[in-house]
């Protein structure tokens, strides 16, 4: 039965060969009929003749193709169902080989082939899924990746740079006293004591401000090296004025933030903090009083740093 199939296939192949020959005889290639017409013209053949010739060839072609089609249809469906595992397993051995041994060798070969095919197919599927997932998160860098990346700045180095930078303009901020601490797990901690009245803890990553908390002068953060109590940065102050000040200091932090100029934003922020040294000694710009509902003016506007009570700020700065 195998031989029959092979004969049929070779007959089809012969037909195809014939078609190809007839086409090339007429100098016609189906993909380039313009060139064919051009050639015919040069040989002194009229367009009508060459068109007729072409039609004849196409008719022959049509007959041949029908022939092939018919032959293909006659051959058992085995050709078109090569991918089916059950069929492959049942297909008889090719050639003159026969016998149970050969049969089983072929069978195991097919099985192996199938399992390889399915695992290839699975990996293709997975990689397609992975590709889709990865496409949602652009990992590409904006610039060419540097093959020898710059060594990351250590916390200590960044603290030292920051300290140098702040000391550079600290003369402009006479009411602020700075203390720098390295906390490798967190970043650099900058503790600012504002005119002995209150203390502000600023958590920095590089020069970017990450968090801020305000507390009274006696409410320690326990940052000293000899401090026995655990470091406590974020417990809110027990005093209402400093809790309100913390909220305002966080709002100011967001206001002054500038991703491309972190250092100058830090400078502006410290200037804003410096203006709070007058927390208890400046009356409100709007109502002229020191106290409003028991609290001093805890807000400083961001431009000329004038003092406002929380309530007066809302009345003064609400866009009309």
């Amino acid at each position: 039965m195998g031989d029959t199939t092979r004969n049929q296939l070779s007959a089809i192949l012969d037909n195809l060969q014939e078609i190809e020959n007839s086409l090339s005889r007429q100098n016609i290639s189906l993909v380039d009929y313009r060139t064919a017409i051009q050639n015919a013209r040069e040989e002194g053949v009229t367009v009508e003749d060459s068109a007729n010739g072409l039609r004849r060839i196409l008719e022959n072609l049509d007959t041949d193709l029908r022939d092939i089609e018919k032959k293909t249809a006659d051959t058992p469906s085995m050709i078109s169902s090569l991918g089916l595992a059950s069929f492959l397993c049942n297909v008889p051995s090719i050639g003159a080989m026969s016998g149970a041994a050969v049969e089983s060798v072929n069978k195991s070969l097919y099985e192996e082939l199938i399992s390889t095919y399915s695992s290839t197919e699975r990996s293709r599927e997975y990689s397609a899924a992975a590709h889709n997932a990865l496409a949602q998160y652009p990992f590409r860098r904006g610039t060419k990746p540097n093959l020898r990346p710059k060594r990351a700045e250590s916390t200590e180095e960044s603290r030292r740079n920051l300290e140098r930078y702040i000391r550079g303009f600290s003369a402009m901020l006479p009411t602020l006293t700075f203390f720098f601490y390295d906390q490798p797990a967190m970043g650099t901690i900058l503790e600012v004591i504002v005119d002995r009245i209150f203390r502000v803890v600023i958590l920095l990553r590089g020069s970017h401000i990450e968090g801020v908390n305000v507390r009274g002068s006696e409410e320690q953060h326990n940052l000293g090296l000899k401090e026995l109590r655990p470091i406590d940065l974020w417990t809110p102050s027990g005093l209402e004025v400093f809790r309100q000040l913390t909220r305002n200091a966080q709002a100011a932090m967001l206001h002054f933030q500038s991703p491309f100029l972190p250092e100058s934003s830090l400078k502006n922020y410290l200037q804003w903090l410096n203006s709070l040294a007058t927390l208890f000694s400046t009356p409100c710009r709007r109502c002229g009083k020191y106290l409003d509902n028991g609290l001093p003016p805890t807000f400083r506007d961001y431009k000329i740093l004038q003092a406002y009570h929380e309530g007066c700020r809302i009345l003064s700065f609400t866009p009309s």
Partner: peptide, 9 residues
């Protein structure tokens, strides 16, 4: 309670 410096307030 919030202010520890006499002169300022």
């Amino acid at each position: 309670r919030s202010c520890p410096v006499l002169i300022t307030a």
